[in-house]
Write a protein that binds this DNA or RNA. Structure first.
Length: 111
DNA sequence: AGCCTGACCTAGG
DNA sequence: TCCTAGGCCAGGC
């Protein structure tokens, strides 16, 4: 019920298909640079919601699928991303710079 | 109320 | 370049 989480979900839902962003970028956009860990925590609670949150489009700053282990199955997160055209090798997004979506520059006038 | 933890990030050695 | 430590904030026990 915390507005912080709601904002996180709002941002995550804005991520276009085939694009990804990072925990830190979302936290920075929300004004809590050190709150990157909270973004991951929010994702942990996200599956509890009825609403579909594309948590698979959120990775760490290095473009690595650090949260894949929290998805059902082995490569669920990777398969979801690959189905959107993202290239992943060894849990690492290859064209990360191309698909990276920065909420700070894309949503600067929203929320 | 206090302590531990976590899907992170940055800085210093 | 790899490894360690600290900060950050909310939730669970």
């Amino acid at each position: 019920m915390s507005s912080f989480y709601d904002k996180i979900y709002e941002v995550v839902k804005q991520i276009p298909v085939g694009r990804v962003t990072s925990y830190g970028a979302i936290a920075e956009y929300l004004g809590s640079k050190g709150g990157a860990r909270m973004v991951g925590w929010a994702m942990n609670s996200a599956h509890n919601l009825k609403e579909h949150i594309p948590a698979h489009r959120v990775v760490n700053r290095n473009g690595m699928l650090s949260g894949k282990h929290h998805f059902p199955g082995e490569n669920m997160m990777q398969e979801l991303l690959e189905s959107e055209g993202i290239i992943i090798i060894n849990d690492q997004i290859q064209n990360f710079d191309d698909v990276f979506w920065n909420p700070v520059t894309e949503l600067h006038h929203l929320l």
